[in-house]
């Protein structure tokens, strides 16, 4: 196995890779924020007493969780423009696909978090004369949000790595730039190793932080 490592190919190229990391982070943050908002609304809607609302949101969530993210991404980028005439840029397509896909998982987490708050809390709030909405926003959600922070942290860590998928539609993020460099330099071993290490050094502390959040939540309960 006499492979001769040539990390000097990175010279002048590392900045190009790290620029991609910036886009990876930006895309992750944007998708996370979008999916938190959408997921929270969907999670509440799934608990609506109105059957039609439950049905629609359940289908939405099942469908997005039951199809590959890669397929959703390609569908939004290639199929949607043909069907509707609306064309999104690669970055916009990526953000939309990630947000919708993630919102299904986030909504399940919020739903479970809301349901984990004891019935007595809801009853105490209603007995004071609160409306359903006041009960949700003043009593249930403030408690549920604390409980869902650890699982949402896990979603964030997965999301961060899953953004590599969007390289297939030429979003110039870290993975895509790695692919470009490996072709230009004929050095896939060094380039992809470095790309993997960059992902790892950014992801690892966050994964550990999420473990810590879970542990803290376990100790508190």
């Amino acid at each position: 196995m006499g492979y001769e490592w040539r990390f000097d190919v990175l010279e002048g190229n590392l900045e190009f890779l790290l620029g991609g990391l910036g886009l990876t982070i930006g895309l992750s943050v944007l998708s996370m924020i979008g999916s938190l908002i959408l997921g929270l609304l969907l999670g509440i809607a799934r608990l609506s007493p109105w059957r039609g609302m439950q049905f629609v949101t359940t289908i939405y969530s099942d469908f997005l969780r039951g199809t590959p993210l890669l397929v959703q991404l390609l569908w939004i980028y290639y199929s949607l423009p043909i069907l509707t005439g609306v064309v999104f840029s690669p970055i916009a397509s990526a953000a939309i696909a990630l947000t919708f896909n993630l919102s299904a998982f986030v909504s399940e987490i919020f739903r479970a978090g809301i349901q984990s708050i004891g019935r007595g809390q809801r009853e105490a709030a209603l007995a004071l004369g609160m409306t359903g909405w006041q009960t949700m926003t003043r009593v249930i959600l403030p408690q549920a949000v604390r409980r869902v922070i650890p699982p949402l942290g896990s979603v964030w860590v997965s999301l961060f790595k899953d953004t590599a998928l969007v390289s297939v539609i030429a979003v110039p993020e870290l993975m895509y730039r790695g692919k470009v460099l490996s072709i230009e330099t004929y050095r896939p071993v060094e380039i992809y190793t470095v790309v993997a290490l960059i992902y790892f050094f950014v992801t690892f502390p966050q994964a550990r932080a999420v473990d810590w959040l879970f542990e803290r939540a376990r100790v508190r309960s």
Binding site: G118, G120, Q121, E123, A124, A125, L126, A127, L128, G129, M130, T131, V139, P142, Q143, R146
Partner: peptide, 21 residues
Amino acid sequence: NLPRVRRQVGMVFQHFNLFPH
């Protein structure tokens, strides 16, 4: 109007149900 009715009638529960936050 249930919230209005419930304002008139206070309730105390077996398990207190205070808001823990």
